[in-house]
Amino acid sequence: MNRSKSGQRGGMMLVLILVGLLAYIGVLGAQVFPTYMEFQSIQKAVKKAAAEGNSVAEVRLIYEKATAVEDIKSVQPKDLEVVKQGDRWVAKFAYSKEIHLFGPAYLVMKYAGSS
């Protein structure tokens, strides 16, 4: 069976498009993954700060120390909403990250959590 040259070019074009799409998804994943890892670090630091703190100021101070160790940039101590619920402190946070896709298009990641 002989394939026509145009059929071979069409198949090659499809392969190139698929490879390009997979490469773009890989690049996008490489940009999304660090934002998720930072969210995990923030969540861990907030839980620790709320569990160990005895006041709003102390919860923020403990969290601030964790931001220095974990290199957290997205949520600063002043951004935490710290409230007393019963006999324990609860710290809440919310923020978003934008990842440029192409032209005017962005992927917006919204993160929120609490202790």
Rank of each mutant, 00 (worst) to 15 (best):
Gln40Lys: 10
Ser41Phe: 05
Ile42Tyr: 07
Gln43Asn: 11
Gln43Asp: 04
Lys44Ile: 07
Ala45Pro: 01
Val46Thr: 09
Val46Ile: 01
Val46Trp: 06
Lys47Glu: 00
Lys47Pro: 01
Ala49Gln: 08
Ala50Met: 02
Ala50Asp: 00
Ala51Asn: 13
Glu52Leu: 15
Gly53Thr: 10
Asn54Gly: 09
Ser55Ile: 05
Glu58Gly: 05
Glu58Arg: 14
Val59Leu: 06
Val59Cys: 10
Arg60Met: 03
Leu61Arg: 14
Ile62Arg: 05
Tyr63Pro: 02
Glu64Ser: 15
Glu64Cys: 05
Lys65Met: 08
Thr67Gln: 13
Ala68Trp: 09
Val69Leu: 14
Glu70Asn: 12
Glu70His: 12
Asp71Tyr: 01
Ile72Leu: 11
Val75Pro: 02
Val75Cys: 11
Gln76His: 02
Lys78His: 03
Asp79Glu: 14
Leu80Met: 06
Glu81Cys: 02
Val82Asn: 04
Val83Thr: 13
Val83Pro: 03
Lys84His: 04
Gly86Trp: 07
Asp87Leu: 07
Asp87Ser: 10
Trp89Ile: 08
Trp89Asn: 05
Ala91Asp: 08
Ala91Lys: 10
Lys92His: 03
Ala94Gln: 07
Tyr95Trp: 12
Tyr95Asp: 07
Ser96Ile: 06
Lys97Val: 02
Lys97His: 06
Lys97Ser: 06
Lys97Cys: 01
Ile99Leu: 05
Ile99Lys: 14
His100Gln: 14
His100Asn: 14
His100Leu: 13
His100Trp: 04
Leu101Pro: 04
Phe102Asn: 12
Gly103Leu: 15
Pro104Asn: 15
